[in-house]
Amino acid sequence: MALQITTEHVEGRVPITVVALDGELDASNFERLIEEVRGLYDAGDRTLLLDLSGLTFMASSGLVALHGIVLVMHGDEPPDLEGGWSAFHALTNAVAGGERQAEVQLCGTQPAVTRVLERTGLDRLFVSHPDRATAIAAI
C-alpha cells in the first residue's frame, strides 16, 4: 500500500511542478501528500500537475487529499479558515458555472481512479490531460 511521491520542476509556458504519484493513495498516506504540496506552495510553486499514471488505487481519503491540495495551491488554507472556505465555495460555484480551476491539473489518470473521481463528482474540479507531455504543452 505504499505511495511514492516524486517531484519534478519543468518549464512550460509557466513553471510547472509535476508531482507523480506511484502506488496507492489511501487513509495511511493522504495527509503526507497534502504536507508535500504545502511544502511546494511555501517554496513558491504555483502550478501543479499531478501525474497519476502510476496511481493504481485511490481510497475515499484520496478525495480529501485532492481537495486539500486545491485549497493549498489557492493559498486559501487555514489559519484563515473562513476565508479558505468562502474561497472554496467561490471555486465550486465557478465549477457549477462550467469553469475549472487551473492551479492543480491532472494527467494520466487510470480507470480505477477515474471511476472514484466520477462517482463522487470531484472530477469536475480538475482539468484532466491524457499524459504528461500533452499536459505540459497545454498548461
Binding site: L63, T92, A96, G121, L122, R124
Partner: peptide, 11 residues
C-alpha cells in the same frame, strides 16, 4: 445513478 458527494458542492 447518483450525484456528487455531500459537503463539496452547492448542489
Amino acid at each position: 445513478g447518483g450525484g456528487v458527494l455531500l459537503g463539496a458542492f452547492r448542489s
